[in-house]
Design a protein around this nucleic acid. Structure first.
Lengths: 159, 159
DNA sequence: AAAATTTAGTTGACAATTCAACCTTTAGCG
DNA sequence: CGCTAAAGGTTGAATTGTCAACTAAATTTT
């Protein structure tokens, strides 16, 4: 019993009539790559990269977080985030402390310097990347984009 | 002169009222990561990874391509793609030949074995990942998702 | 409450990616 | 034509990411 109509076949990679240009994940990957590359340009001159940036941004917006939380939101395997965090600590961007309530948990906090860097990046990228990407988008369209992406995310999150 | 309404501020990372959960690129990155992770599960057992998969898929759908074209569509820096391609050649998935018309260009072609692997992956991932991700999506919604992503891509592509 | 399991994080060995520097071949230009 | 620049690709060194194995703290079982 299939819940999909014949028309959906075009979007299905295993179908004969499949067209990669109509496959949303192809575009998700390319948009992500393009956005990352654009960010890189801004980050490089200040000795940052996307990995560090993601962690810093999450810390700025979500406040102090454990390594696991960072792995979840900033996207990455635990060992990867661990190493990024300690590189960032060596660079003076974050502090790492054991949680009071749970001895296993390492809480990462942005330093003053870290906050300054985030503000600087936001300042430089906002006009350069954000407004360019959404040129011609109305508010409902941005909202719609977000909604659809969130739904994809939720669907993929479910085991 | 600004073309954006006050309401758009919420989506703008540099704005005071910015909410990272309403920032589309945050979701683009997370969706991409989740999709990749899901694909990885299928690819790992057959000795593939996402990088190889992207290259193979592009070759399957676009036909023989130069290294630069692969770098563009499969997303990656030139040296990265070069190395992936030669790893794939050593694994018997592709052939590499100099272009007839331009001595600088290396044309990459999927072998029989390569095609077989792509078909196999498509077969295994289609039901597992694609249909799960788009559960509850109507055809117009998938179409809309694609449109919005393409627009973002085009906007970001423009210098 | 002791033993077993799970959760959170770290580390070292290995694999993959990236940056720079380089080599060819092609395209432009006076 | 001959010179210079640009395009396409490759390679080695350095960086970064990943897997597997491990430690320690907390939770669950019994």
């Amino acid at each position: 019993m299939t819940t999909h109509s014949k028309k959906l076949e075009k979007y299905n990679p295993a179908s004969e009539s499949f067209d990669i240009k109509e496959f949303p994940f192809y575009w998700v990957a390319r948009v992500n790559a393009l956005y990352s590359r654009e960010m890189e340009k801004t980050l490089k001159p200040m000795g940052m990269d996307i990995a560090r940036w993601r962690v810093a941004a999450i810390l700025q917006f979500n406040g102090p977080s454990s390594i696991s939380e960072l792995a979840l939101h900033a996207i990455g395997k635990l060992p990867t985030i661990t190493k990024i965090v300690y590189r960032m600590r060596d660079a003076g961007l974050v502090e790492v402390n054991a949680s009071e309530s749970d001895g296993r948990v390492a809480i990462v906090t942005l330093t003053e310097e870290g906050h300054k860097q985030v503000d600087m990046v936001l300042d430089m990228t906002t006009k350069k990347v954000f407004s360019r990407a959404f040129k011609g988008f109305s508010e409902p369209q941005i909202k719609k984009t977000n909604e659809l992406l969130k739904r994809l995310f939720v669907n993929l999150s479910a085991d």
